[in-house]
Nucleic acid binder design. Sequence first.
DNA 1: TTTTGAGTTGTTCGA
DNA 2: GTCGAACAACTCAAA
Length: 480
Amino acid sequence: MSSPGTIVWFRQDLRLHDNPALAAAVARGGWTLPVYILCDEEEGDWPMGGASRWWLHESLTALAAAISERGSRLLLQYGAALDVIRTLIKRSGADAVYWNRRYEPAVIERDGAIKQALHDDGIVAASFNGALLAEPWDVRSPTHQSYRVFTPFKKRLLECLAVPGALTTPAQLPGPPHWPQSLRTLELLPTLKWYSRMSRHWQPGERGASRRAREFLARPLSGYAAARNTPAIDGTSSLSPHLHFGEISVRQLWRSAQSAAKRRAAPASAWHESTFASELIWREFAYHLLYYHPRSALEPLDQRFERFAWRADRTLQNAWQRGQTGFPIVDAGMRQLWAIGWMHNRVRMIVASLLIKNLRQPWLQGARWFWDTLVDADLAANTMNWQWSAGSGADAAPFFRIFNPVTQGERFDPNGEYVRRWVPELAGVPTQFIHMPHLAPSDVLQSAGVRIGQTYPAPLLDLKQSRQEALMAYRAMRQC
DNA sequence: TTTTGAGTTGTTCGA
DNA sequence: GTCGAACAACTCAAA
């Protein structure tokens, strides 16, 4: 009789350390067959965007190398996942398929169907939690309700949280007696090499993820709350793309950050109250919301916003996308996004507010642009945050929280360093005017080499007036 | 069932 | 320059 063989289906868990599906497959004994399957048609309305595809390419390359160091191979396949898996079972003789769960509505549905079909085939099919501190359905109120407000969600999660110890990285991965064929490439890279700057900025893969986590946790967490709001400095964790692709285990990160906090002699409660712990729980909350509100990726959570008077205008959207709005902090953010596939969180809120409130463009347009351009594009986080910005999501604060890009720039980029880095044509503008060059005296502009409307755009609109119009549109929506 | 307290991230205006 | 109130009431979660 042949030894048991387990297909390990990698998805958004591109790591060997603390990987529940992989560890369970190894613990089962016999051999394992690692595979990644690309299938855009099974991602619902959200096939992976360009920046994510570049990241995935790099991450799969890193994973394949790590797997081959352990005497095995990573198969690459394209096509309907069930068909691919059934073919692999036939060619290899595997009797089980293990994977770590994903939580996007379309994927939940597909995975459920695959699990059922494999059971019917007489194959063992098992899924694991490799992506979250707690499953979305395990964090519920005493009356089994889901949550729509962060603070009670966090409180409940901390009450029921039990983070298990890390699972070790397998030293060896015995392969099947017969290797099915693999595609040589998934053709994830674009023909135009716009990703060269991203390559210099990021190190996708498990090694890059743990290096970044180590660097981040070497700093005092106490400075994080303030540092994360200053876009000119490297004050955020920058772990979002690594977490999205599962190159680092969030449970491992939780434990490491917790012990780093303890090593600094902080009282026991300090970790749970730290801003970084909260940020990790915000990620959990986003998954919780998407799980219980699967339509929220496309529709406003607050249905009154179905009748909000958006004024869809491609010209305005294009100016926003290209970083040509005439508001320096906004343009800096949009250009940073385009250059490195990532934008500082504080700036994400500012650009979203301008698009939604001042330009009054539908939040879904912003969500789609971010989806295509962010290396950390994540359906749960992207949905929650865009809905939050629109005022249609899980947020008690109402629509009238409208960011002023000049005020925000002066508060969070007081020296204009971030603006000058990403909007080089403004480099010579004195700090006093860096966030409102259109209001600078003409002699100041001249010596800075700036001609408004020519070397740098005039503001797309009047902030005060567009703010009033947005508030009026909001009032009108509520009244009918 | 009813009541009570509270809710990520803001801006503007006027004293 | 600083500070509190107004924005506009509403929904959620828990007691």
